[in-house]
């Protein structure tokens, strides 16, 4: 009896591992095919523009709001900590390095997942459900090329931009709370910012933004696009399940990828 239970456990472990490996491979192929589909796609620029609108213009308010509050609170917290050591002049360095290296790319990506990624996943799920994806295929239109490729291409441009905007507005927020509320000289703040941030940090920031953009948008598209393959639900439930999965996995992937990139670069 005992031996059997053990065997079952090992088998369950094996089947889970296989499922994960299979899923990873499937996802990678999905992403590669999406880029490949760019070659045969007609009037791609228009679709990219549309996707750029969804990920860029639509998400700009939330990026700016979250960005400025992040900067404000960093300025506030940082000021009180540095005040104890009498090094308020380093506030700019603290705010800018936190924003450029970590918070900017990560928070911007999380916000974009929440707004654009979830919308993308749900939209594709519904299009799959109502046979719109199949309809594209019967027309001889690549459904990946029409639905996914433009989103991925837009993400590669939009994510770095949103991250840059997030960091910029965050720096502004830091200076607001530092100089307006707490009376730090704003020149001290900005010169500290400029002295602290180096090209390497900025490169790291954009590298992260690009990676997060590619991974999250592709992951959200993957889950929406495969809503019909959802194992334990169909119809509207499948759309909601795949959207949830898309958002949760994207968020985890952002943080995990952040750790990996940071550990490789530092």
């Amino acid at each position: 009896m005992r031996g059997r239970a053990c065997k079952d456990m090992v088998r369950a472990l094996g089947s889970h591992t296989l499922a994960i490996v299979h899923g990873l491979g499937d996802f990678t192929l999905f992403t590669l095919r999406s880029f490949q589909s760019a070659l045969g796609s007609r009037r791609l620029f228009r679709r990219v523009l549309r996707a750029g609108f969804e990920q860029g213009v639509r998400c700009l308010p939330v990026i700016l709001i979250v960005g400025i509050f992040t900067g404000l609170v960093l300025g506030l917290q940082g000021y009180y900590v540095l005040n104890r050591f009498g090094s308020e002049s380093l506030l700019g360095a603290l705010v800018s390095l936190s924003l450029v290296r970590e918070l900017g790319p990560v928070l911007a990506a999380l916000m974009l997942v929440g707004q654009a990624g979830s919308a993308l996943s749900a939209e594709l799920g519904i299009q799959r459900n109502t046979e719109q994806v199949a309809a594209l295929e019967t027309m001889g239109v690549s459904s990946l090329g029409y639905l996914v490729t433009p989103r991925l291409l837009a993400a590669l441009v939009v994510f770095p931009m949103q991250t840059a905007l997030f960091v910029t507005i965050g720096l502004l927020g830091g200076s607001l709370s530092g100089s307006l509320l707490l009376g730090l000289e704003s020149g001290v703040y900005w010169s500290s910012v400029e002295r602290a941030v180096q090209m390497q940090d900025v490169t790291e920031c954009f590298l992260k933004a690009l990676t997060f953009g590619l991974l999250t948008i592709s992951l959200c598209a993957y889950h929406g696009f495969n809503a019909h393959r959802c194992r334990n639900a169909t119809g509207a439930r499948a759309v909601s399940a795949s959207t949830t999965r898309a958002v949760v996995q994207s968020s985890i992937v952002v943080l995990a990828a952040d750790y990996v990139i940071t550990s490789f670069l530092v």
């Binding site: 796609s41 007609r42 199949a134 019967t138 001889g140 029409y146």
Partner: peptide
């Protein structure tokens, strides 16, 4: 070849004209 789905499978976020134009836009 064209396929007419039982559910019509119209693109619900495109207007009627955009729906009709889509196959031409994407394949010609």
């Amino acid at each position: 070849c064209s396929f007419l789905f039982q559910s019509n499978a119209l693109f619900d976020s495109l207007t009627a004209l955009e729906n009709v134009a889509l196959p031409l836009e994407q394949t010609t």
